[in-house]
Design a protein around this nucleic acid. Sequence first.
RNA 1: CGGGACGUAGCUCAGUUGGCUAGAGCGCACGGUUCGGGACCGUGAGGCCGGAGGUUCAAGUCCUCUCGUCCCGACCA
Length: 577
Amino acid sequence: MLQSQIFAKTSKSSRADAESVNADLLTRAGFISKTMAGVYSFLPLGWRVLRNIENLLREEMDPIGAEVFLPSLTPFEQWEKTGRLNSVGILFQACAANDLGRKVHDAHYVLNSTHEEVITPLVQSYTVSHKDFPCAAYQIQTKFRNEARVKSGLLRCREFRMKDLYSFHTSEEDMLDYFFHKAIPAYTRFFDRVGLGDRTVIALASGGDFSKEYSREFQTLCPAGEDQLFQIPGTDTYYNREVAPSKAPPWGDPKEKELPRKDVEGKGIIGVTELAAFLKIEVERTTKTLIFSSDKGFIAAMVRGGYDINEEKLRKVVGCMRMQLASAEEVTTLTGAKVGYAGPIGLPATVRLVWDESTAHRKNFECGANETDKHTTNANFGRDVAVPEKFYDIKVAREGDMDPETGKRYDVHRAAEVGNVFTLYTKFSDAFGFHFTDKDGKEKPVYMGCYGIGTSRIMGTLAEILHDDAGLQWPTAVAPFHVHVLPFAKTKEEESFNVALDLAASLEKAGFTVLVDDRLDTSAGSRMADSDLIGIPKRIVISQRSLTAGGGEVKDRKTGAVAVHPLKEVVGMLLNG
RNA sequence: CGGGACGUAGCUCAGUUGGCUAGAGCGCACGGUUCGGGACCGUGAGGCCGGAGGUUCAAGUCCUCUCGUCCCGACCA
């Protein structure tokens, strides 16, 4: 392809709103262009990269599932059936201007954020017998999610490309077998091939409320990533922060002498940092108490100052189905104080107290006084509040925390979630009444799994990781072109230009994709800078100088190594890597 | 959804306490000189100062609202 045919030009200066390395480089190099926050157009070079990523992915998916293409637009009803119409907060709901008889804003369609609502009834309509299972289908599609906060270029968009695979099974065992022995290995091979293998790990993450085990996330270690992984040192065990079991560094001296309990006026002081400063005590001495309401009654959850409560962990401790922060009215009724002054001492007996292990070992701790503007200091277990039967882990893990099993302090990493795999069990098949007739003639529920890979996010992650000061450095497997040929000639009649075209033709014949920079009116320096910015793995300069020196000057974008090779040998040399 | 910052030429930005006939660099067009690391000289085109109200003799500049964009946090199959 001739570079003059690509309308998207490079830019020397970063856009003012270029929020991240990947957005900056990909925009400046002419791969993508922002249409609005979190929505990008893919330009010729960028679309080629995305296509390469997706085609590579197809090669790994085709052996384990059949490719389909599902609609983006879905009727409301299907989302009502699963109850997700209202529970998925980021859902785009659409209405049409010419839907007469309906009010404007009276949405009747969903722009799919994921496709369980489409694929489940679809597969259901064709499968009735146990002989039809297992089966799996995948697609690569545009997804819509109105993310509360769009950020980091292609890493978090409102409209993005995703591969989603769904599998259907007659038993839990078969579902798990597919999950562990088909999906995960295929994913691992794909991430190796796409160029992220050496930095991508499998992390344990929340499986959702319907799942018995952790889901698995494929996470690429990368400072721009928005997830935090907690690694047990020296092992392959990584937890997403949202599920990492944690043991706080112990704080407190059991031998400390108990002081008289005292209620202190601290008007309007809410928040442990402010409070600790006001009371002139350590933050660790303070206690954060949050009141939750659940189907098992009210719960007061206590963590040491500086920690947050992990509702998922708390839910498991309590053993409830649903749980939410108590309303301001409920808090006032229970504590007799405004929100912000709740504490464990003197709550109604109906409120279950759940203490985090970080609060143990402390003497003379602070907590809310259950009275507006008041804080209790020098509280002690046994004297002021009952010694808990057990201390739990109900907090969000923090850097510095230890894995409770091994007692080792976690290594914490930033990472970008590039793929995830879930066991869905019968959540969706139940919603649609998706059953099959088993060998014994009985109707049984279908087990499902779903497996996602964000292909546009992978493009962003690659840019985020593989670049230097001069620009992008694409791995050969996904590069927009394999070779960038730069003829340095003044006119198209010159020898070097025609030699370059001949070389490009023979490279293409050998199976390489080639971009020829035919912008002869542009200075050599700026064309080389563009070449570095675009990041095609191999650059070949053909000029009077290189011809005199014996042929074409080949430069490796990644290593920067430069060497002149006879023209006849260039193709063979590139074929041999 | 909370907190913060920013909207002036295609892009990056300057524009003092209101005085503007709105600037610079890059890019673009034309002419010339260059020709292997973002060349140089000259000429030129290009703006509803995000939008709507207001204050004022006078608003890019001050006030209110609104829309947009980014950052931090919350959220996140």
